[in-house]
Amino acid sequence: MIEISLQKKLNTADGNMMMQADFEVESGIIHTIYGASGTGKTSIFRMLAGLLTPDAGKIVVNGQTWYDAANKINRKPQQRNVGFMFQDYALFPNMSVRKNLEFALKNEQNRVIIDQLMDIIALNELQHRKPETLSGGQKQRVALARALVNKPDLVLLDEPLAALDKPMRQKLQKYVAEVQRELGFTMLLISHDVGEILKLSQGISVLENGQLSPPREPASFFTSSAVSGKFQFEAEVIHIKREGIVFILNLLVGNRLIKIVAQPDDVENLHVGDQVIVASKGFNPLIYKV
């Protein structure tokens, strides 16, 4: 169980802002922090990792107090046993992939974990390469593996899969889900990708105007009025066109473009680029095996 309560004055693009984040996360799940850019999501992670000191609050991870303003406890990053996957990977350029992972080992830690992670995340072929020779997706895999080597009590994934194309993303989501399932990590995820959040996380909190909302279930969050549809899928709005009294929406689902009919009040708050969930319960979908 991870109990977090943080207050911090942040300098943002729109001036100073008081940030307040209180939440609890069960051990062994992936929980998402969601919110617009520049709202302080990364700052929360930095405070959890000990790289930024909150103004007040408390962080308790599996019964261990990492930070407690009232009792003047503030563990250094080195004493927190946290895994941090940085947005820009922060791989060590002087070390090969394997050496990057080995560097993360604790004293006298069993090396088996390295081979285990390299197997799950498919790094064996890359193990002797230097980071500069890797593609973006490969670097992210290495960064993910390195963040897990010392079996952290809490893993922080800061937009781990941003800047990847769709197939690569899906592959990496698979890796994240797999390590989490096999090794039982507790993970916090910063992500903007609705599909990714739904696929990976079991809980979501939203950071808005400096306030972090109480945890909710991702599916119910994104479909505000809980949908119990016959089918549903996530999509990105590509184009909105009026045709008579209805609207035609062009949506990107995975790599496919589809068209659906929408009512004017459905479209009212929609903009190109929005992530949406499309669900239907009015008919039975026809499914053919091809």
């Binding site: 990053p77 080195q78 004493q79 922060a90 560097f103 993360a104 604790k106 390195r146």
Partner: peptide
């Protein structure tokens, strides 16, 4: 920071 988070002095 990455090195610190990995527990290195």
């Amino acid at each position: 920071e990455a090195s610190y988070v990995l527990g290195k002095s």
